[in-house]
Design a protein around this nucleic acid. Structure first.
Lengths: 129, 129
DNA sequence: CGGGATCCTACGGGATACTG
DNA sequence: CAGTATCCCGTAGGATCCCG
């Protein structure tokens, strides 16, 4: 293990930041929905169902801030706002999908490990409860 | 947009879960450190520096639960516990590194977009403050 | 319709003290 | 040395009301 090992902390921060960014409760879902093409605020909201309008607003703001989605306002009488993936946003989808594929492929193994762990540890500790 | 669009919500949940799992503050850092080989509790702690022992314990427990790291206890007088990446954990590193590469490659673009956004929006809104 | 402001709760996560 | 338990705070995130 060379010095570069410790030095790697910096790149890792970057990764963490990205992961935290899209790893929150809604960002990924929104990005994926927008992957099918531009959508209006309420269309996104309806497609996700359970999201609150506050969180959708916040999520979209964050994604817009990072340059992943673009926001287009139509100054019509009933306000209309379209959200769409930017090139950077589309680009992001590539590695994200890689991770997604991995997740899909290994989800079962993870869940099995999880159940095994819970059974083993939960069983011997909270047995008195 | 076909029905499959809505149906995709399920795989996305999986991805979100994985992302949330490793997207927390410490999991990725720990996984990366263990990528260099097995480490003891305090070695990990020291290598990360700022992590509290509570969070390190919690993080390791979570990773162990999901089957990403293995925990080996040596019943010696001064307790010694080794943590190592499981094959699944190593495997996870592949797509994670893909995302990491992307993050590294695009970090500057994101940060620029972020600054631009902050300058534009923060400037016109909090001007009164 | 889009979204800002406010209130409130749950949880992540840090500091500290104690145990085996 | 490794780990648990407790306290405490900040933020994520939901519900609701209000405004253009």
């Amino acid at each position: 293990m060379k010095q570069s090992t410790l030095h790697q902390t910096e790149p890792c921060r970057r990764i963490s930041e990205i992961l935290s960014r899209i790893g929150d409760k809604w960002s990924l879902l929104v990005i994926r929905q927008l992957g099918n093409g531009p959508l209006r605020f309420s269309e996104i909201k309806r497609s996700l169902g359970s999201i609150s309008q506050k969180m959708l607003t916040a999520t979209l703001r964050g994604l817009e801030r990072d340059g992943f989605v673009s926001r287009t306002v139509f100054p019509t009488v009933p306000p209309r706002v379209d959200y769409a993936l930017t090139p950077l946003g589309c680009d992001l989808l590539v590695p994200v999908r890689q991770l997604g594929d991995w997740a899909m492929a290994n989800a079962e193994r993870i869940e099995r490990s999880r159940r095994r762990f819970d059974a083993a540890h939960g069983g011997e500790k909270s047995a008195a409860a």
